[in-house]
């Protein structure tokens, strides 16, 4: 297991290195930040000075080496716009995105699994058919439209929930989050639901398919023949078997929620990383974009590692072996 993790971390280093190449050179292609940053009335001398101050006068390979050297020391460069370290900017926005992603993931699990279980256990019932039809809507309706509809419904007409921004935060267990205040939670509910909708649909379908398949397995019949109570058959024998695909998908989806909740964050003016990314892209704030993408890569690698470990807990046949070692 330890060997497995070390091996995976080394693979991750390679992935991160390759990604840094792609990201760094890719970003250099999309436009010249100097055009955006400089006062249109500035004279040539001033332009030259700015270019030199940003380090953009050097050859690109040299810029890249400089960038790598920075990363090695935990320095992703300074934002062109804010003049602050890019990493610090991102880390400032990270908690807001993490709480949004966590809550929406929780919604997907808490709503998706029971609904999917029900639809799988009683496939002929009208309620089950309704659940399945709704799940299709869940992942086929465009996020931005659902977001607008949620705002229309709950904020404009009903006036129950605020439509934009992050609410009050409080510190609990050393973590500052809007989860600890009512105001914060009320701000969180709509964007989290908006973000969760696709995943709820996905989890419903995965759970249902899992249940339909597992219910016909001999081990379920054997469990019944042992005289086990229904709650134990469903809660232990069935659940542990259907969790395997769900964990895989949710792991990947969690990465997506963190990295690409851009649309939802924009609609609900949620001050998270997605919003930061969009703003930085529009302003060609290269260091922030690069740092952001690098951190996302790291996050994905970490989540995948976590999923693999959870796998081995769920399914004893999956062994975290280090091949060829």
């Amino acid at each position: 297991m330890t060997v497995f993790i070390i091996r995976r971390l080394m693979q991750a280093m390679i992935v991160v290195f390759l990604m840094s190449l792609i990201v760094f050179f890719g970003v250099n292609v999309i436009g010249n930040p100097v055009d955006m940053l400089i006062n249109p009335e500035a004279d040539q001398a001033e332009i030259e000075r700015t270019i030199r101050a940003l380090g953009l006068d050097k050859p690109i390979a040299e810029q890249y080496l400089f960038f790598l050297k920075g990363i090695a020391q935990g320095d992703f460069g300074k934002s062109f716009i804010f003049g602050e370290p890019a990493l610090k900017l991102i880390l400032q926005h990270l908690p807001a995105t993490i709480e949004l992603a966590l809550v929406s993931l929780l919604m997907a699990v808490v709503l998706g699994i029971p609904l999917g279980l029900y639809a799988g256990l009683f496939p002929e019932q009208g309620i089950s058919r309704t659940i399945m039809a709704s799940s299709i809507l869940g992942f086929s309706l465009p996020t931005f439209w659902v977001g607008l509809m949620l705002i229309m419904g709950f904020s404009v007409y009903l006036g129950w929930l605020p439509s934009t921004g992050r609410g009050e935060t409080a510190v609990f267990l050393g973590i500052e989050s809007s989860l600890w205040t009512w105001n914060g939670l009320s701000h969180l509910l709509l964007p989290a639901l908006n973000l969760a909708l696709t995943n709820i649909g996905l989890v419903i379908r995965l759970s249902r398919a899992g249940v339909r398949e597992a219910m016909h397995q001999e081990y379920i019949k054997f469990a019944r023949a042992k005289g086990l109570p229904t709650h134990r058959i469903i809660g232990v024998h069935l659940m542990k078997n259907i969790m395997i695909p769900i964990v895989t998908v949710l792991g990947l989806e969690f990465g997506n929620l963190l990295a690409f909740s851009v649309v939802t964050e924009t609609i609900f003016a949620w001050p998270g990383m997605g919003k930061l990314l969009i703003d930085s892209l529009l302003q060609l704030d290269r260091p922030v974009v690069v740092a952001y993408l690098m951190i996302i890569v790291l996050l994905f690698v970490a989540i995948n590692l976590l999923v693999d470990i959870v796998y081995s807990i769920l399914d004893p046949r999956v062994r975290l072996r280090d091949q060829g070692a």
Binding site: Q217, E218, Y219, K221, F222, A223, A225, K226, V236, H237, K240, N241, L314, D315, P316, R317
Partner: peptide, 17 residues
């Protein structure tokens, strides 16, 4: 009343000890 099934590969739950 107890039962023994046909295929021992399938009757024991693979994810439980």
């Amino acid at each position: 009343i107890a039962m023994i099934f046909q295929d021992p590969m399938m009757t024991l739950n693979p994810v439980l000890r």
